[in-house]
Amino acid sequence: MRRVLTILFVFLIAACVDRGATVIVPEALNIGTIRDVHVATLRAPNEQGWFGSERAKELSFSTVSISVPPEHEPGKVRAGLARPDPRREFTVAARTDLKDDGAFIQRIRDRLLKLPAGEREITVFVHGYNNSYLDGVYRMAQLYHDLDLPGVPVHYSWPSAANPLGYTYDRDSVLYARDGLERMLFDLRKAGARRIILVGHSLGTMLVMETLRQIEIREPRWAENALGGVILISPDLDVEVFEMQASRIAELPQPFAIFVNSRDRALALSSRINGASARLGNLTDPDALAELPVTLIDVTAFAEGGLRHFTLGNSPLLLQILGQSTELDAAFQRDRSGRSGLLPGTVITVQNATQLILSPHLVLQE
Results as ranks from 00 to 15, higher is better:
K57A: 14
R83V: 11
L81D: 01
R265G: 15
V299A: 03
P74Y: 05
P286Y: 05
D100V: 04
A79F: 09
P360M: 01
L252R: 01
A278W: 14
V92D: 01
A21M: 13
I196Q: 02
I348F: 14
L175S: 15
R83S: 12
Y176S: 08
D148E: 15
R3T: 09
A79P: 04
G151M: 04
R111K: 15
A82E: 09
A40M: 05
V17G: 11
D187F: 10
V299D: 05
E240N: 09
A162S: 15
A330D: 13
S132C: 13
A191L: 06
V37C: 07
I34N: 00
D97G: 04
G136Y: 07
F256L: 01
E58V: 13
L198S: 04
W222V: 06
L356E: 05
N46E: 09
G281E: 01
L364E: 12
P286I: 05
T300R: 05
W222K: 00
T63V: 14
F242P: 00
G180L: 02
K190A: 12
A15W: 09
W222T: 01
G52D: 11
T295R: 07
W158I: 10
A14W: 06
G341L: 02
A353F: 07
V294T: 05
T205Y: 00
P26G: 03
L175K: 11
A223F: 02
D238K: 03
I348Y: 15
R265I: 10
W158Q: 07
I108Q: 02
V152W: 05
N282V: 00
T41H: 01
I31C: 03
A162V: 04
H127N: 11
Q355C: 07
R3I: 15
A276H: 14
Y144S: 06
P253W: 03
F9S: 13
E119Q: 13
A331T: 06
S262P: 03
S60C: 14
D172E: 12
D335M: 13
S270C: 06
C16F: 13
I348Q: 12
R43D: 09
V241N: 06
D187P: 01
H201E: 02
S315N: 11
L149D: 05
N274D: 08
F90S: 02
E210M: 08
H309Q: 15
N46P: 06
N352G: 10
N225S: 11
R43E: 04
T22V: 14
Y169I: 09
S65R: 00
L143K: 07
L98V: 03
P159S: 09
K114S: 14
L358S: 03
L12A: 10
V239T: 08
S325D: 03
R2F: 10
V92K: 00
S160K: 07
I215T: 07
A117Q: 14
N274C: 12
A223Q: 03
H361L: 12
T96I: 10
N282R: 11
Y169M: 06
L364R: 11
A14H: 11
H155N: 10
G49N: 05
N352H: 13
G200H: 03
R55M: 13
A353R: 04
T123E: 06
L175F: 09
P69C: 02
Y169R: 12
A117L: 13
L232C: 03
W158L: 11
F259P: 00
V126Y: 08
S53C: 13
T123V: 05
T346V: 14
H145Y: 15
V10H: 15
V152R: 07
